[in-house]
Amino acid sequence: MLNIFLLPLAILISYIFLYDEIINKTNYVITSTGYIALVYLVITLSLPLLKNNSLKVKTRLFGISAFYFSMIHFILYVIDNSYDLVFIMEDALFRNYIIVGYLALILLIPMYLTSFKYFKDKIKEWKKLHKIIYVVYFFILVHIYFIIKADYYYLILFSSIFLVIIIFKRYNIYKLNE
């Protein structure tokens, strides 16, 4: 947890305060925490594909950290709007990227909870439940799509990664069945 969550967070925070080239600091942290969360989701999806047991242990930590970064991403958005609930509600109702952002965030919660033994014991089907990650990833792609003004470079990049991961998983299942 130290290496995967706290260290990147510390680097990000010190970067903003020590490096004076970042002009719009709040926007920068909001955007970076969002992208870090997405990259962590990519890692969470890809690590099991490597079939390396020592790395598999880390999968859970990356998943949990992805949730923490999304939460920071969301909390900063609330702070950035001065905790103004009317404004935040209006955003949630009228802005597409905010709506899908909430959907992705809410769907992360059951996965986060069932990462802990207490809930794993209660919900035996937790492994099936974790398939929601694909839906979350899809919502994040839509979230990015709605916020991009014109340059779809990052959307294409993360959509391609998503496709490659899905193809690999399908291929693995196919091989197992043979």
Partner: peptide, 19 residues
């Protein structure tokens, strides 16, 4: 008149924290 992506009610003056 708000934009589909940004409410135009507020703005951040670069260098300031509160909008």
């Amino acid at each position: 008149v708000s934009h589909p992506r940004w409410s135009q009610k507020r703005e951040r003056r670069i260098g300031e924290f509160r909008k």
